[in-house]
């Protein structure tokens, strides 16, 4: 594996600070990410939680260096991997990081696989391209990997085409492909959203096992607060392109500090009890070409007052030091106190 210049093994595994991404379209500039901050340690699972359009996938694409450019541009901020700012690397160096250090799996496994090649060929290709392996050695590695992601009868299934696999098995193949070169960071963007719950449970279990074995950092992007409660160590809640709250999983569920987090938790029905009427968050998330002044959540917020409607937007307040918690709300003390 090529060595990246400037790598500091003691620096945080991944650290995103003040990230800004915008899309320059014919309708105007959409500010998709407006200052996102988070970090990830080895062996840790960070969940990025938020509703559709809040910027989860764009954040992941910016980290991977696969933003759709144009129209998308990173305009500000840093993405540091072991101390190296990925945004300052050449495209060639970036590609190497992408293959060897940071990998990603997507929601839609079927469209990510090529229908005209066998699963084994596509997996083997990774080893031929990046490790210079022979055809037969690469196929052998492909079988081992399929076995590791618990595809039954891997030796015979390796010659199947993607359409011969079920949705859950295709997602396993994607995981195998992402893990082929032993990355230290895995970003999983809604990896189970398209799957049935029993299959989701299998896949989440598999991801947790692989992460433990490899001491990998996992960024799990999802909108499912059940999945997050089950697997995350820490959570970053995103709203309109910002991380509005960041906290360890137990703290955020028992004492949310941001009104949006709190409202989300109150609006989901529960499996384990017959609830009362659901409380709702009124209105809709903002259009990104026209984000409200001040706090972007203010038109929907039950706590909002005049200060919230004025620029600048709430800064990243430190909610507590031990554990480390932050919230972008002027009135977090009131919210968490209740």
């Amino acid at each position: 594996m090529d060595v990246l210049p400037g790598i500091d093994p003691r620096a945080p595994l991944l650290e995103v600070s003040d990230l800004h991404v915008e899309f320059r379209t014919q309708y105007g500039v959409a500010k998709a990410i407006n200052g996102a901050n988070f970090w990830l340690s080895a062996g840790e699972t960070l969940a990025i939680l938020g509703e559709s359009g809040c910027g989860k996938s764009v954040t992941a694409q910016a980290i991977m260096g696969i933003l759709d450019t144009p129209p998308g541009y990173v305009t500000q901020g840093q993405i540091k991997y072991r101390g190296v700012d990925l945004l300052k690397l050449s495209e060639n160096e970036r590609r190497k990081v992408r293959a060897n250090r940071i990998a990603m799996i997507f929601q839609d496994a079927l469209s990510a696989l090529n229908p005209v090649y066998t699963v084994g060929f596509q997996l083997g290709e990774v080893f031929r391209k990046h490790r210079g392996m022979s055809r037969s050695a690469a196929k052998q590695r492909a079988i081992e990997l399929l076995d590791q992601v618990k595809i039954p009868a891997a030796r015979t299934r390796v010659d199947d085409y993607p359409h011969q696999f079920s949705g859950g098995m295709r997602q396993r193949v994607m995981i195998a492909m992402a893990l082929a070169l032993d990355p230290e960071v895995l970003i999983a963007d809604e990896p189970t959203t398209a799957l049935d719950v029993t299959v989701q449970a299998q896949i989440m279990g598999l991801l947790a096992d692989l992460q433990r074995e490899r001491n990998m950092g996992l960024i799990l992007i999802t909108h499912d607060m059940g999945v997050v409660a089950d697997v995350a160590d820490r959570i970053s809640v995103m709203y309109a392109g910002r991380v509005v709250e960041e906290a360890p999983v137990y703290d955020i569920y028992s004492r949310p500090a941001h009104p949006y987090t709190r409202a989300l938790l109150e609006s989901i029905p529960r499996l384990d009890m017959k609830g009362q009427q659901l409380s709702v968050i009124r209105g809709l998330p903002p259009v990104l070409t026209d984000v409200p002044k001040g706090c972007a959540f203010n038109p929907r917020c039950a706590y909002a007052r005049d200060a919230c409607r004025q620029d600048p937007a709430p800064p990243v307040y430190q909610v507590s030091q031990q554990p480390h918690r932050t919230a972008r709300c002027h009135f977090f003390r009131e919210v968490i106190g209740e």
Partner: peptide
């Protein structure tokens, strides 16, 4: 039972404290 056990509950305090049934196969 298998279906229900696979549904995550939005409460981290239940982690590891529920009966887990993982179904094999399709």
């Amino acid at each position: 039972q298998a279906l229900l056990s696979a549904v995550p509950v939005p409460d981290p305090r239940l982690r590891g404290h529920r009966d887990q049934i993982v179904l094999e196969g399709d």
